[in-house]
């Protein structure tokens, strides 16, 4: 009936909407991507179900029966109307290399990526940062400050994540809209100041093998 509320009552875009832009919110499992998107979005986060077929893991090839594995991934996203005609979409993007085809599809046309990092498990973010660097997409890193997480000096984090000195490194609370906006402002400011085409090739550097002697950071002044 006409009066019955739709089971999928849509929140439509304004009729003057012209330009849709997107930013990826990337990071490992549980780092706060959905929380970040929810804090910023004008609607509850939506999601699409994506089916991925991939080559089997080694276990399967040992058994020799299956050669494909199908995985379903939920991709969540949200949107925020910035002006009458300009709308920003945020796409939560899983950081695993096995989702790379999905990653490539979602990242097409993105302005850039915000990588969320949890200092309790920094290593979990290496894979997603590598993926983004391989794609050539500009990015900023936001440390999502979980209450019990260790606090590192920015230069120590930079060194450990091997960030380019120009890559913004900020802290944020993904639950707080203002803090999330600030992280995006850092990203977009970076996009304006350091356009990707102007960026020179990364200089090969020695792998930091030693454990994390504090106070011996080598990444310049480390930004802030």
């Amino acid at each position: 009936m006409d009066s019955a509320p739709s089971d999928n009552a849509a929140t439509y875009l304004g009729s003057n909407t012209q330009t849709l832009v997107k930013v990826l919110v990337a990071g490992p499992f549980g780092v706060g991507k959905t929380t970040f998107i929810r804090a910023l979005s004008e609607t509850a986060p939506l999601h699409t179900e994506e089916t991925m077929t991939q080559a089997s893991a080694s276990v399967d090839s040992l058994i020799g029966v299956r050669d494909k594995v199908t995985t379903t991934v939920a991709m969540d996203f949200g949107r925020r109307t910035l002006t009458d005609d300009l709308v920003l979409y945020l796409f939560g993007t899983p950081g695993q290399r096995r989702f790379k085809p999905l990653w490539e599809d979602v990242s097409r046309g993105a302005l850039g990526a915000l990588v969320l990092v949890d200092t309790r498990r920094l290593g979990d973010s290496f894979e997603v940062i590598d993926l983004i660097e391989e794609s050539g997409m500009p990015y900023a890193v936001a440390v999502n400050t979980f209450d019990d997480a260790p606090r590192h000096e920015p230069e120590v984090l930079r060194d450990h994540l091997d960030l380019d000195p120009r890559t913004p490194l900020v802290t944020c609370d993904a639950r707080d809209a203002g803090s999330a906006v600030d992280a995006l402002i850092a990203l977009v400011t970076h996009l304006l100041t350091d356009p990707p085409d102007a960026a020179p090739e990364a200089v090969p550097d020695a792998a930091p093998e030693a454990g994390l002697p504090s106070g011996t950071a080598t990444a310049g002044d480390g930004g802030r």
Partner: peptide, 15 residues
Amino acid sequence: MSGRRSERRLVPAYM
């Protein structure tokens, strides 16, 4: 804990 580059593996850019 070692740094990120030690796990690095390059594949061609697609973008």
